[in-house]
Every structure is written in structure tokens, then in C-alpha cells.
């Protein structure tokens, strides 16, 4: 019976050496799958960026990037989101040390920061619409609202997801399963942060100097 083996020996052997979110093969598999998802999401944003870059001067007589963007506004958004990425990172760190209370707290803070970010962004959009800069004003604005809006939707979704995980952590503590979820939502959050850094440079900074 030399060629038969019992259940996945590889995974069992080195389970000890790994942090909790990787401790079970089924969970580490899900983390791998999540990385793949992030790859597709990155390509999605890449397409939207390409679209924006192509269209950002096509203003059809409407407002240009320079006249529209409000510097303190997007600087504040950037600051808040970067901070939230940091707090999210702490949550992951605490999770790896099995401190569920602390995880919950840091997730909560991250959620609040995320909400603040979304709040500011919504305010910015409402203001834009108010002065007549809408999705249908020009190709530039279509691309702008779609790119930034898609990021905003991702963040909003992330908030709901994080809230769900927060409840689960409180209810079930740090298990391999909840640990994996905290880890994944953390990855997602950092990813959105990176996307925002690109938005900040490609959309806002470039818009201001043009």
C-alpha cells in the first residue's frame, strides 16, 4: 500500500509553523483564491484607469479637472483612507495573536474611518452634481465618476463585509475560519488603499497640475 496516503499529509505536517489564518488547508486555500480575485479586480481598475487617462481631457465644454477638484477634500480623503489601512493592518496583527477583543476594536475603528471616507466622497459628488458636473456632462466626468465611484463602491462593500466579520469575531472568537476572514478583508482593504493612491496621483494630482 505504499502508493496510498491518508488525508493531505503535507498540510498537517507544517501546520504548527504557520499563523492561524493559514493553519488549515481549506482556509489557506481561500486566501489563495482571494489573491486571485484581487488580481482580477486589479485588472478591472486597470481598464478603468486606461479609460480615464484616455478621456480626461475630453470635457465637452464642461468643467475641467482643475476647476472641479477640491484640494482639501481629496487630501482629507487620502489621509483618512491611509490611516484606515494602518488600523486595518493592526487588526490583522492582533488577529494573529489571537486577541479577539482588540481585533474587534481595530476593525471598528477601520469601519468608522471608512465611513468618514465615504461620507466625504459622497459630499464631493453631491457638490459636483450641484454645480452641474454630472455623469452626463462630458466623457471626462463619466470616466471620473465611474473610476472614483467604483472605488467608492468597493469601499462601501468592504465596510459592510468588515462589519459582518466584526460580529463574527465577537461571536465566535478567533478561529481559523474567522482569522482567515479578518485576513482577507485586511488584504482587500490594503488593495483599495493602493488603488486610491493611484487615483490620488492619476486623477487628482494630475488634474491639478494640468
Amino acid at each position: 500500500m505504499s502508493i496510498m496516503t491518508l488525508e493531505r499529509p503535507r498540510a498537517h505536517e507544517d501546520a504548527e509553523a504557520k499563523t492561524i489564518e493559514y493553519s488549515q488547508p481549506s482556509e489557506s486555500l481561500k486566501i489563495f483564491g482571494f489573491w486571485l480575485f484581487l488580481a482580477t479586480d486589479m485588472l478591472l481598475f486597470a481598464c478603468l484607469f486606461a479609460t480615464y487617462v484616455l478621456l480626461h481631457t475630453h470635457t465637452a465644454g464642461g468643467p475641467t479637472a482643475r476647476t472641479l477638484f477640491d484640494v482639501p477634500g481629496f487630501e482629507a480623503e487620502t489621509f483618512i483612507l491611509l490611516t484606515s489601512s494602518f488600523t486595518g493592518g493592526i487588526a490583522t496583527y492582533e488577529m494573529q495573536h489571537q486577541r479577539s477583543k482588540s481585533v474587534a476594536v481595530w476593525l471598528f475603528i477601520t469601519i468608522l474611518l471608512g465611513l468618514a471616507f465615504i461620507g466625504l466622497e459622497v459630499q464631493e459628488f453631491i457638490h459636483d452634481v450641484h454645480i452641474g458636473a454630472t455623469m452626463s456632462t462630458s466623457a471626462f466626468l463619466s470616466a471620473f465618476f465611474t473610476l472614483v465611484g467604483t472605488h467608492g463602491c468597493h469601499v462601501s462593500l468592504g465596510i459592510v463585509w468588515m462589519a459582518a466579520i466584526l460580529i463574527q469575531v465577537l461571536r465566535w472568537g478567533i478561529t481559523p475560519q474567522t482569522a482567515r476572514k479578518v485576513f482577507n478583508v485586511g488584504l482587500y482593504w490594503h488593495f483599495l488603499d493602493v488603488v486610491w493612491v493611484f487615483i490620488f496621483t492619476v486623477v487628482y494630482l494630475t488634474g491639478m497640475v494640468m
Partner: peptide, 20 residues
Amino acid sequence: FDRLFGAHFFTIAQGGNPMM
């Protein structure tokens, strides 16, 4: 988005680009 929400990604007159 062009068809439902009045965006202009591909309507040329408002600066869209169908080749995209």
C-alpha cells in the same frame, strides 16, 4: 452606463471614444 445613466464613454460628440 451610457445607455442607462446618460454617461458619454462612447458618444463622440461629448468627448467619448467608441474605439475604446
